[in-house]
Protein backbone atom coordinates (compact mmCIF):
# COMPACT_ATOMS: atom_id res chain seq x y z
CA UNK A 1 0.00 0.00 0.00
CA UNK A 2 1.42 3.27 -0.95
CA UNK A 3 0.41 6.82 -0.71
CA UNK A 4 0.94 9.19 -3.50
CA UNK A 5 1.23 12.79 -2.74
CA UNK A 6 -0.14 14.96 -5.39
CA UNK A 7 2.26 17.58 -6.42
CA UNK A 8 0.63 20.91 -6.80
CA UNK A 9 0.61 22.14 -10.30
CA UNK A 10 3.34 24.66 -10.80
CA UNK A 11 1.18 26.76 -12.97
CA UNK A 12 -1.55 27.08 -10.36
CA UNK A 13 -1.66 30.79 -9.50
CA UNK A 14 -0.84 31.46 -5.76
CA UNK A 15 -3.74 33.14 -4.04
CA UNK A 16 -2.84 36.72 -3.25
CA UNK A 17 -4.30 37.81 0.08
CA UNK A 18 -6.95 40.39 -0.41
CA UNK A 19 -7.45 43.41 1.77
CA UNK A 20 -10.39 41.61 3.34
CA UNK A 21 -8.19 38.61 4.26
CA UNK A 22 -5.57 40.88 5.80
CA UNK A 23 -8.24 42.72 7.73
CA UNK A 24 -9.69 39.47 9.09
CA UNK A 25 -6.24 38.29 10.10
CA UNK A 26 -5.46 41.57 11.81
CA UNK A 27 -8.81 41.51 13.58
CA UNK A 28 -8.12 37.98 14.78
CA UNK A 29 -4.70 39.00 16.00
CA UNK A 30 -6.17 42.01 17.77
CA UNK A 31 -8.81 39.88 19.44
CA UNK A 32 -6.19 37.43 20.62
CA UNK A 33 -4.06 40.31 21.84
CA UNK A 34 -6.91 41.78 23.84
CA UNK A 35 -7.83 38.37 25.20
CA UNK A 36 -4.29 37.86 26.39
CA UNK A 37 -4.16 41.36 27.81
CA UNK A 38 -7.52 41.09 29.52
CA UNK A 39 -6.33 39.58 32.83
CA UNK A 40 -3.60 42.19 33.16
CA UNK A 41 -6.02 44.99 32.22
CA UNK A 42 -8.58 43.74 34.71
CA UNK A 43 -5.94 43.56 37.39
CA UNK A 44 -4.74 47.08 36.55
CA UNK A 45 -8.30 48.42 36.54
CA UNK A 46 -9.12 46.95 39.94
CA UNK A 47 -5.86 47.54 41.71
CA UNK A 48 -4.48 50.63 39.98
CA UNK A 49 -7.05 52.63 38.04
CA UNK A 50 -9.90 52.52 40.55
CA UNK A 51 -7.69 53.30 43.57
CA UNK A 52 -6.01 56.14 41.67
CA UNK A 53 -9.37 57.61 40.68
CA UNK A 54 -10.65 57.07 44.23
CA UNK A 55 -7.62 58.89 45.63
CA UNK A 56 -8.14 61.75 43.19
CA UNK A 57 -11.79 62.05 44.17
CA UNK A 58 -11.14 61.69 47.90
CA UNK A 59 -8.47 64.37 47.69
CA UNK A 60 -11.23 66.82 46.84
CA UNK A 61 -13.25 65.94 49.97
CA UNK A 62 -12.86 66.31 53.72
CA UNK A 63 -13.68 62.63 54.32
CA UNK A 64 -12.51 61.57 57.79
CA UNK A 65 -14.24 58.23 58.41
CA UNK A 66 -17.25 59.97 59.91
CA UNK A 67 -20.85 59.87 58.77
CA UNK A 68 -20.65 63.07 56.79
CA UNK A 69 -18.25 64.50 54.27
CA UNK A 70 -18.28 67.35 51.83
CA UNK A 71 -16.54 68.55 48.73
CA UNK A 72 -13.74 70.99 49.47
CA UNK A 73 -12.44 71.45 45.93
CA UNK A 74 -8.72 72.14 46.03
CA UNK A 75 -8.90 73.16 49.69
CA UNK A 76 -6.76 70.21 50.81
CA UNK A 77 -4.08 71.19 48.31
CA UNK A 78 -4.17 74.79 49.50
CA UNK A 79 -3.83 73.60 53.10
CA UNK A 80 -0.93 71.36 52.16
CA UNK A 81 0.92 74.32 50.68
CA UNK A 82 0.84 75.89 54.17
CA UNK A 83 1.36 72.69 56.17
CA UNK A 84 4.85 72.84 57.65
CA UNK A 85 4.84 69.12 58.50
CA UNK A 86 3.98 68.21 54.93
CA UNK A 87 6.59 70.58 53.51
CA UNK A 88 9.18 69.21 55.93
CA UNK A 89 8.22 65.65 54.96
CA UNK A 90 8.48 66.46 51.28
CA UNK A 91 11.88 68.05 51.76
CA UNK A 92 13.18 65.14 53.84
CA UNK A 93 11.95 62.66 51.23
CA UNK A 94 13.55 64.55 48.35
CA UNK A 95 16.77 64.91 50.36
CA UNK A 96 16.68 61.22 51.22
CA UNK A 97 16.24 60.33 47.56
CA UNK A 98 18.90 62.72 46.32
CA UNK A 99 21.47 61.33 48.75
CA UNK A 100 20.54 57.67 48.84
CA UNK A 101 19.99 57.02 45.11
CA UNK A 102 23.31 58.15 43.64
CA UNK A 103 25.41 56.85 46.50
CA UNK A 104 23.73 53.45 46.56
CA UNK A 105 23.91 53.19 42.76
CA UNK A 106 27.60 54.07 42.77
CA UNK A 107 28.45 51.62 45.55
CA UNK A 108 26.32 48.90 43.98
CA UNK A 109 28.04 49.34 40.62
CA UNK A 110 31.49 49.29 42.22
CA UNK A 111 30.64 46.14 44.18
CA UNK A 112 29.09 44.52 41.10
CA UNK A 113 32.25 45.23 39.10
CA UNK A 114 34.23 43.63 41.91
CA UNK A 115 31.95 40.60 42.03
CA UNK A 116 32.21 40.27 38.26
CA UNK A 117 35.90 39.37 38.60
CA UNK A 118 37.19 35.90 39.18
CA UNK A 119 37.88 36.12 42.89
CA UNK A 120 37.74 33.56 45.69
CA UNK A 121 34.57 33.34 47.72
CA UNK A 122 32.48 34.94 44.99
CA UNK A 123 29.35 33.02 46.00
CA UNK A 124 29.73 34.06 49.61
CA UNK A 125 30.08 37.75 48.76
CA UNK A 126 27.13 37.69 46.37
CA UNK A 127 24.99 36.06 49.06
CA UNK A 128 26.24 38.41 51.77
CA UNK A 129 25.40 41.51 49.75
CA UNK A 130 21.94 40.18 48.89
CA UNK A 131 20.92 39.15 52.40
CA UNK A 132 19.76 42.65 53.47
CA UNK A 133 17.37 42.72 50.52
CA UNK A 134 15.59 39.53 51.52
CA UNK A 135 15.53 40.40 55.21
CA UNK A 136 12.42 42.04 56.67
CA UNK A 137 12.91 45.78 57.07
CA UNK A 138 11.59 45.60 60.63
CA UNK A 139 14.36 43.13 61.53
CA UNK A 140 16.94 45.31 59.83
CA UNK A 141 15.66 48.40 61.60
CA UNK A 142 15.78 46.64 64.94
CA UNK A 143 19.40 45.65 64.40
CA UNK A 144 20.32 49.18 63.36
CA UNK A 145 18.51 50.55 66.39
CA UNK A 146 20.97 48.57 68.48
CA UNK A 147 23.90 49.72 66.34
CA UNK A 148 22.84 53.34 66.87
CA UNK A 149 22.09 52.88 70.58
CA UNK A 150 23.93 55.77 72.26
CA UNK A 151 24.86 53.74 75.33
CA UNK A 152 25.69 50.27 74.15
CA UNK A 153 25.58 50.49 70.36
CA UNK A 154 28.19 49.26 67.94
CA UNK A 155 28.55 52.62 66.20
CA UNK A 156 29.63 54.52 69.29
CA UNK A 157 31.69 51.55 70.48
CA UNK A 158 33.61 51.52 67.20
CA UNK A 159 34.11 55.28 67.12
CA UNK A 160 35.28 55.31 70.73
CA UNK A 161 38.28 53.21 69.62
CA UNK A 162 39.43 56.30 67.76
CA UNK A 163 38.67 58.65 70.62
CA UNK A 164 35.38 60.03 69.29
CA UNK A 165 32.74 61.14 71.81
CA UNK A 166 29.49 59.13 71.81
CA UNK A 167 26.84 60.37 69.42
CA UNK A 168 23.06 60.27 69.94
CA UNK A 169 22.54 59.17 66.35
CA UNK A 170 18.77 58.95 66.07
CA UNK A 171 17.99 61.38 68.87
CA UNK A 172 20.10 64.21 67.49
CA UNK A 173 18.33 66.33 64.85
CA UNK A 174 21.63 66.79 63.00
CA UNK A 175 22.39 63.09 62.62
CA UNK A 176 18.98 61.38 62.62
CA UNK A 177 18.22 61.66 58.88
CA UNK A 178 21.80 60.88 57.76
CA UNK A 179 21.71 57.82 60.05
CA UNK A 180 18.57 56.60 58.29
CA UNK A 181 20.16 57.31 54.91
CA UNK A 182 23.06 55.02 55.80
CA UNK A 183 20.63 52.19 56.55
CA UNK A 184 18.68 52.94 53.37
CA UNK A 185 21.84 52.81 51.25
CA UNK A 186 22.98 49.57 52.87
CA UNK A 187 19.59 47.93 52.59
CA UNK A 188 19.10 48.74 48.93
CA UNK A 189 22.50 47.54 47.71
CA UNK A 190 21.61 43.88 47.17
CA UNK A 191 19.00 44.33 44.46
CA UNK A 192 21.05 46.89 42.59
CA UNK A 193 24.16 44.72 42.73
CA UNK A 194 22.32 41.73 41.28
CA UNK A 195 20.92 43.83 38.42
CA UNK A 196 24.28 45.42 37.68
CA UNK A 197 25.99 42.05 37.85
CA UNK A 198 23.58 40.61 35.29
CA UNK A 199 24.13 43.62 33.05
CA UNK A 200 27.92 43.44 33.38
CA UNK A 201 27.86 39.83 32.31
CA UNK A 202 26.00 40.91 29.21
CA UNK A 203 28.59 43.45 28.10
CA UNK A 204 29.96 42.39 24.72
CA UNK A 205 33.20 40.45 25.17
CA UNK A 206 34.12 41.32 21.59
CA UNK A 207 34.07 45.00 22.41
CA UNK A 208 36.09 44.47 25.56
CA UNK A 209 38.66 42.40 23.67
CA UNK A 210 38.83 45.02 20.92
CA UNK A 211 39.48 47.66 23.55
CA UNK A 212 42.21 45.45 25.01
CA UNK A 213 43.80 45.05 21.59
CA UNK A 214 43.69 48.81 21.14
CA UNK A 215 45.71 49.14 24.34
CA UNK A 216 42.91 50.63 26.48
CA UNK A 217 43.51 50.78 30.23
CA UNK A 218 41.00 49.24 32.68
CA UNK A 219 39.52 52.63 33.37
CA UNK A 220 39.24 53.43 29.66
CA UNK A 221 37.57 50.06 29.06
CA UNK A 222 35.07 50.81 31.83
CA UNK A 223 34.31 54.35 30.67
CA UNK A 224 34.15 53.66 26.94
CA UNK A 225 32.75 50.15 26.77
CA UNK A 226 31.16 49.01 30.02
CA UNK A 227 29.48 52.27 31.07
CA UNK A 228 27.66 52.90 27.75
CA UNK A 229 26.51 49.28 27.71
CA UNK A 230 24.88 49.73 31.09
CA UNK A 231 22.66 52.62 29.92
CA UNK A 232 19.26 50.86 29.94
CA UNK A 233 20.05 49.11 33.20
CA UNK A 234 21.11 52.37 34.82
CA UNK A 235 17.74 53.81 33.87
CA UNK A 236 15.89 50.83 35.28
CA UNK A 237 17.82 50.98 38.55
CA UNK A 238 17.26 54.73 38.73
CA UNK A 239 13.50 54.44 38.27
CA UNK A 240 13.08 51.63 40.80
CA UNK A 241 15.31 53.51 43.23
CA UNK A 242 13.26 56.70 42.88
CA UNK A 243 10.03 54.85 43.54
CA UNK A 244 11.61 52.91 46.40
CA UNK A 245 13.13 55.89 48.18
CA UNK A 246 9.99 57.97 47.83
CA UNK A 247 8.04 55.15 49.41
CA UNK A 248 10.39 54.73 52.37
CA UNK A 249 8.21 54.14 55.41
CA UNK A 250 8.84 51.03 57.47
CA UNK A 251 12.44 51.96 58.20
CA UNK A 252 11.44 55.39 59.50
CA UNK A 253 8.37 54.07 61.30
CA UNK A 254 10.37 51.53 63.29
CA UNK A 255 13.50 53.56 63.91
CA UNK A 256 12.38 57.14 64.60
CA UNK A 257 8.66 57.56 63.96
CA UNK A 258 9.65 60.73 62.17
CA UNK A 259 11.46 62.25 65.15
CA UNK A 260 13.17 63.97 66.78
CA UNK A 261 10.46 66.56 66.24
CA UNK A 262 9.77 66.07 62.55
CA UNK A 263 13.40 65.81 61.49
CA UNK A 264 13.02 62.39 59.87
CA UNK A 265 9.38 62.67 58.88
CA UNK A 266 9.00 61.48 55.29
CA UNK A 267 6.09 61.69 52.88
CA UNK A 268 4.60 58.23 53.33
CA UNK A 269 4.87 58.51 57.11
CA UNK A 270 3.08 61.87 56.92
CA UNK A 271 0.38 60.33 54.71
CA UNK A 272 0.03 57.42 57.14
CA UNK A 273 -0.10 59.81 60.08
CA UNK A 274 -2.80 61.93 58.47
CA UNK A 275 -4.86 58.97 57.25
CA UNK A 276 -4.66 56.49 60.09
CA UNK A 277 -3.70 58.49 63.16
CA UNK A 278 -5.40 61.83 62.50
CA UNK A 279 -8.15 60.14 60.42
CA UNK A 280 -7.99 62.82 57.68
CA UNK A 281 -8.36 60.56 54.66
CA UNK A 282 -9.24 63.35 52.23
CA UNK A 283 -6.18 65.33 53.24
CA UNK A 284 -3.95 62.26 53.07
CA UNK A 285 -5.30 61.51 49.60
CA UNK A 286 -4.27 64.97 48.42
CA UNK A 287 -0.79 64.27 49.77
CA UNK A 288 -0.74 61.00 47.89
CA UNK A 289 -1.63 62.76 44.64
CA UNK A 290 1.22 65.21 45.19
CA UNK A 291 3.59 62.33 45.91
CA UNK A 292 2.60 60.67 42.64
CA UNK A 293 3.25 63.92 40.78
CA UNK A 294 6.66 64.37 42.42
CA UNK A 295 7.67 60.78 41.62
CA UNK A 296 6.54 61.29 38.02
CA UNK A 297 8.60 64.50 37.86
CA UNK A 298 11.67 62.73 39.18
CA UNK A 299 11.21 59.91 36.67
CA UNK A 300 10.81 62.52 33.93
CA UNK A 301 14.08 64.15 34.93
CA UNK A 302 15.68 60.69 34.97
CA UNK A 303 14.47 60.07 31.42
CA UNK A 304 15.86 63.39 30.25
CA UNK A 305 19.22 62.62 31.82
CA UNK A 306 19.17 59.18 30.24
CA UNK A 307 18.44 60.62 26.80
CA UNK A 308 21.18 63.22 27.19
CA UNK A 309 23.59 60.47 28.24
CA UNK A 310 22.62 58.31 25.24
CA UNK A 311 22.96 61.21 22.81
CA UNK A 312 26.44 61.92 24.14
Amino acid sequence: MSTTLERPALDTPRKVPTAKDTGTLLKGQKRTGWALLAPALLHSAIFIVIPVVAVLVLSLTDYSFGDTWSWVGFGNYADLARDVDFLASLWHTVLYAIVVIPISMAIALAVAVGLNQKIRGLGFFRTAFYIPTVTATVAIATIWLWIYNPGSGLANGFLSLFGFAPNRWLADPATALPSLMVVGIWQGLGTKIIIYLAALQGVSRDLLESADLDGASRWQRFVNVTWPSLGPVQFFVLITSIVGTFQVFDLVYVMTRGGPGSDTRVLVLDIYQNAFQDLKLGYASAETVIMMIVIAAFIGVGRLLQRADTND
Binding site: P173, G259, G261, S262, L279
Partner: peptide, 21 residues
Amino acid sequence: SNWLEMRGNFDIQLTQAVLGQ
Protein backbone atom coordinates in the same frame (compact mmCIF):
# COMPACT_ATOMS: atom_id res chain seq x y z
CA SER B 1 -12.76 67.22 68.53
CA ASN B 2 -9.57 67.27 66.44
CA TRP B 3 -7.51 65.96 69.36
CA LEU B 4 -6.30 62.91 67.43
CA GLU B 5 -4.63 65.31 65.04
CA MET B 6 -3.41 67.50 67.90
CA ARG B 7 -1.73 64.60 69.70
CA GLY B 8 0.82 64.29 66.93
CA ASN B 9 1.12 68.05 66.56
CA PHE B 10 1.90 68.41 70.26
CA ASP B 11 4.54 65.69 70.16
CA ILE B 12 6.30 67.18 67.16
CA GLN B 13 6.08 70.87 67.94
CA LEU B 14 6.87 70.66 71.65
CA THR B 15 9.95 68.63 70.75
CA GLN B 16 10.98 71.29 68.25
CA ALA B 17 10.61 73.95 70.95
CA VAL B 18 12.53 71.91 73.52
CA LEU B 19 15.37 71.22 71.07
CA GLY B 20 15.59 74.93 70.23
CA GLN B 21 14.38 74.54 66.64
